[in-house]
Amino acid sequence: MSAWRFCPLCGAGLQVRAVADLPRLVCGADCGFVHWDNPAPVLAALVEYHGRVVLARNQGWAAGAFGLITGFLERDEDPAAGVAREVKEELGLDATAVTLIGVYPFARQHEVIVAYHVRAEGEIRLNEELAEFRLIAPEKLKAWDFGTGLAVSDWLARRVP
């Protein structure tokens, strides 16, 4: 449950009540506010660049921790266009093909991951969010058992060399 305590509309205290048979925070003064607390949609890109997969390390991550390119879906944005935008923003690369890998729950971060295989070209130029990148041959890529690693596992299982 969220850490919200007060209604953002009227300032009354929030209470846990069943809404559509689910526990939700609702305004105690009954102004109509319901904090739905739904997971955020996150886009993930398994970027294939010159036959290799790009893994990147976020500035805030520990040394040696690498992952896929990710970012939040913007309002009114098509997810496939959004993942191409994220690849352009974070790596400076242009998407030439975008294919859905799958959709994965990521309860630990309160997110839903929409993962794509993105073929890209251009010159890699990291933005300020990323510290470094690695290019991994697909046959040496190893999936991890949470978050975007589930998409890596599915992509590797379906991949035709």
Rank of each mutant, 00 (worst) to 15 (best):
R134E: 14
A115K: 05
R57P: 04
G51R: 02
G13P: 01
K88F: 10
D94W: 02
K88M: 13
I136M: 05
R24T: 05
G92W: 00
A45P: 03
E123K: 14
V152F: 01
R158H: 11
A20L: 13
W4D: 10
L100T: 12
E86D: 04
A84Q: 08
L150F: 14
G122F: 07
V83H: 08
R75G: 02
F133R: 04
Y49V: 09
P8V: 08
F133M: 11
W61R: 13
V26Y: 08
G67I: 02
E48N: 11
R125E: 06
R5D: 06
V160R: 15
I69C: 14
P105Y: 07
E123Y: 00
E48F: 06
P39N: 06
E132A: 15
H110V: 04
R85T: 06
Q59T: 14
A97D: 14
V112S: 04
R158T: 11
H110P: 01
E139C: 05
S2T: 14
V53Y: 11
A56H: 08
W144I: 12
V53Q: 07
A80Q: 14
N58Y: 13
W61A: 15
M1V: 12
A151F: 06
A137L: 13
F72R: 15
F72H: 12
T99K: 14
E139F: 07
P105M: 08
P161C: 08
A81Y: 02
L130Y: 05
G13R: 13
N127H: 04
G11E: 03
A143F: 00
W4F: 10
D76W: 09
G92A: 01
R125A: 13
R5T: 14
P41N: 11
E86H: 15
P105A: 13
A80T: 09
D94E: 15
A81E: 15
A29F: 04
D154L: 13
H50P: 00
R159N: 06
R17I: 00
D37M: 03
G64F: 01
A143M: 00
P39I: 10
A12Y: 02
F6I: 07
E48D: 12
L25A: 07
L55Y: 05
H50C: 05
L43R: 06
A45R: 00
L73I: 04
D76N: 15
Q109G: 09
Y116M: 03
W4G: 02
I136G: 03
P79M: 10
L126G: 01
R52Y: 01
A80P: 00
Q15K: 14
I124Q: 02
L43K: 09
R57Y: 04
L150C: 10
N58S: 13
A62R: 15
A131P: 03
Q15W: 00
F66E: 12
C31S: 07
R158F: 03
A44E: 14
W61D: 12
P105F: 09
W36Y: 10
A44S: 11
V87K: 00
A81K: 12
A65T: 15
M1P: 07
R125V: 08
D78G: 07
R57T: 09
D76K: 09
A20Y: 10
G11Y: 03
V98A: 03
A137Q: 13
W36G: 01
C27V: 04
P138A: 08
L156T: 06
G147K: 12
R5H: 02
K140D: 15
A29C: 09
R85E: 07
V152N: 03
G147M: 07
H117A: 14
W144V: 15
A20H: 11
C7F: 01
L156D: 02
D94V: 13
I69T: 15
D76S: 12
A84P: 05
